[in-house]
């Protein structure tokens, strides 16, 4: 790197390149927002689901579990847990019963805390997980095990 390639040339390429690619990123974000309604299951984004998302957040579920592959890797993926545990045939009931039964207390096994959720809150978190399972994730995860 010598001769005509000066520091100010390098700086100008930096600013030009950064601005260009950031604008491109904004354009892709705009297209993304246009495409999302067909994929993100927003038709089913009910107040109950929104309340369920809040329970997901305030119990820090993502501190152990993944949701659509993001989060901690200590406990099972929950983006598809509704499907894995029976879907329309008992998925919701399984999720509620599971949360209520924690912790298992089995010696040496990983433990999930008891969150003392009310019946209404249990319905909300289950509705949220059902909602997430219906998002179009381009066929991820590869199978039901998550």
């Amino acid at each position: 790197m010598s001769g005509s390639f000066t520091t100010s040339t390098a700086r100008n390429i930096f600013f030009g390149g950064t601005v260009f690619f950031f604008l491109l990123f904004l354009a892709l974000t705009y297209r993304n927002e246009q495409a999302l309604p067909a994929r993100d299951n927003r038709a089913n984004l009910t107040p109950q689901v929104v309340a369920g998302k809040k329970i997901w957040e305030t119990r820090n579920c993502v501190g152990c579990h993944t949701l659509l592959g993001e989060g901690a890797y200590f406990a099972p993926e929950l983006g598809n847990v509704y499907v894995r545990r029976g879907g329309a045939q008992g998925g919701t009931e399984f999720i509620k019963a599971w949360i209520k039964a924690q912790p298992t207390g089995a010696p040496g096994r990983r433990q999930m805390p008891q969150f003392n959720l009310s019946d209404k809150e249990l319905d909300e978190i289950a509705a949220f997980l059902k909602y997430v399972s219906e998002i179009n994730t381009s066929k991820w995860p590869p199978n039901n095990e998550g």
Partner: peptide
């Protein structure tokens, strides 16, 4: 320069399976 021209659009590697479009 190399960092930002690859890294900004590189954000897209987090947008494969979270409900975002396939492009």
């Amino acid at each position: 320069t190399l960092t930002l021209i690859t890294g900004i659009i590189g954000t897209g590697h987090h947008y494969f399976w979270i409900g975002t479009p396939e492009y």
